[in-house]
């Protein structure tokens, strides 16, 4: 897998056949109860959130879900959350904190949804609140970047204690297409952009941005190994005194 070029990795991360966030949620947890709405305005289908049992213990999951076909993609706006989506995630994270549930965030987004209405509803503010709260949550918080991890829209769900990436995933300050058009005024230079952005899991692990690469799972695969791994990670983090947990999380980002 590591012999793929950066741009091949971009394409692999965007494959519609990849295992979906919904399947990961349903097979990693049992008895998943989905919760809708931000209690302010709307329910954003780009984010699936709720409570499930991980090896018998309750966790809160928030995950960004792309559509499987055109209709679903339009409804979920291609996995780009609106402010309402981020506020739903924030509401569920606060609820998780209240009930001492660890948080698992699954990220697969090209970025926050860029439209006029999202601007009117405070996209910047919504992302900012998630980051601010994320840094202070008094429960273990783990993120897996499943496919695309695009800029602030990804970071909004990725400032936890651990950040992992699937083999076929990417994480960058903006898309290679956006980078190409800003740096060279030429959107066609995506391959060079992908290289320069150092957006592969290997490059990001070497740079200390992420903590581990998780091997790629296909739809229908048995997820018990991943489930046990997350169970272990959450158990370890949950043993830390709360102040230490938050302090270590802050230190993780303080070093950047």
């Amino acid at each position: 897998m590591a012999d793929k070029t950066a741009y091949e990795r971009v394409k692999a991360a965007r494959r519609p056949e990849k295992i979906s966030t919904a399947e990961l949620i349903n097979h990693l947890t049992s008895g998943f109860f989905e919760q809708h709405g931000d209690r302010l305005e709307a329910d954003d289908p780009a984010i699936i959130g709720g409570i499930g049992l991980l090896n018998g213990k309750p966790i809160t999951v928030v995950g960004i879900q792309k559509g499987a076909d055109t209709d679903e993609n339009i409804a979920r706006h291609f996995g780009s959350p609106t402010p309402e989506g981020y506020r739903k995630a924030l509401r569920l994270m606060k609820s998780a904190e209240k009930f001492h549930r660890p948080i698992l965030a699954l990220v697969n987004t090209p970025g926050a949804w860029p439209d006029v209405e999202s601007e009117y509803h405070g996209q910047g503010s919504a992302v900012a609140q998630n980051i601010l709260k994320g840094m202070q949550l008094k429960v273990p918080y783990i993120t897996i970047i499943v496919g695309e991890g695009g800029s602030g829209g990804a970071l909004a769900l990725a400032c936890g204690d651990r950040v992992f990436m699937f083999e076929d995933s990417i994480y960058s300050v903006l898309s290679p297409e956006g980078y190409a058009s800003i740096m060279w005024k030429d959107a066609a230079k995506v391959e060079e952009s992908a290289e320069e952005l150092k957006l592969t899991p290997e490059a990001l692990l070497a740079d200390g941005i992420i903590d581990k690469i998780i091997h790629e799972y296909q739809p229908g695969d048995d997820l018990s190994e991943l489930r046990d791994f997350l169970d272990q990670e959450f158990s370890q983090l949950a043993k830390l005194p709360i102040n230490d947990l938050v302090e270590r999380r802050n230190q993780r980002y303080r070093n950047f």
Partner: peptide, 14 residues
């Protein structure tokens, strides 16, 4: 500065 720029958002927020 790529991803390092993105990480500043989290660092400052802390």
């Amino acid at each position: 500065e790529g991803i390092h720029s993105l990480m500043q958002m989290a660092k400052v927020s802390g």
